[in-house]
């Protein structure tokens, strides 16, 4: 599906195996950590029919396409006593292309698929100090949910 974000034409679609390299690169650029193994596992699960969704946003050129953003998630049920719920595990938009509605569109794409998969809500986890992502998710209408994350050093 193609959306014209002001003057920028952005194409949104489910990720394919040949997107892996660009996803790993953008993830490293945004998070500062290279997680090649994690992404390989994600793609293996995705294409093995084990669930999960990855959507990407790309800018198409004459010969190639540049990845501008991605979102990853899946519907999970009954863990922690939770009804079927769409979980967003990761979201990234190239810093040069932010504030142009790309993250919002990726969020809508994955939420729509979660709904088709039987989820009635969408959930994510954000570091308390990560104001950028927390503000983004709140701007999509997300609020504190019924669960609190607890942890302990072991």
């Amino acid at each position: 599906m193609i959306y014209n974000q002001s003057k920028l034409e952005v194409h949104f679609r489910p990720a394919e195996p040949n997107d892996l390299e660009q996803i790993v690169k953008l993830d490293k650029q945004v998070s500062g950590i290279e997680k090649g193994d994690y992404w390989m596992e994600r793609f293996t699960q995705l294409h093995g029919g084990l669930g999960g969704h990855i959507f990407i946003a790309e800018k198409q050129n004459a010969e190639s396409s540049d990845l501008l953003g991605f979102i990853v998630g899946e519907v999970r049920a009954w863990e922690f006593g939770s009804r079927p719920c769409g979980w967003i595990f990761a979201l990234a938009v190239d810093p040069e292309y932010r504030i142009q509605g790309i993250g919002e569109k990726l969020f809508k794409e994955i939420s729509s698929v979660f709904k088709e998969n039987g989820a009635t809500s969408v959930r994510t986890m954000v570091a308390r100090k990560d104001q950028l992502n927390m503000s983004f998710f709140r701007a999509q209408g997300m609020m504190g949910g019924p669960f609190i994350e607890l942890e302990k050093a072991i």
Binding site: A139, G141, G144
Partner: peptide, 22 residues
């Protein structure tokens, strides 16, 4: 305190006004 501050810091005026609509 940390949760309170993270919550207030992540809600812009625009987002709060949108919640009225939601």
């Amino acid at each position: 305190d940390e949760i309170t501050q993270a919550t207030f810091s992540s809600i812009t005026l625009d987002t709060l006004l949108k919640t009225i609509h939601w």
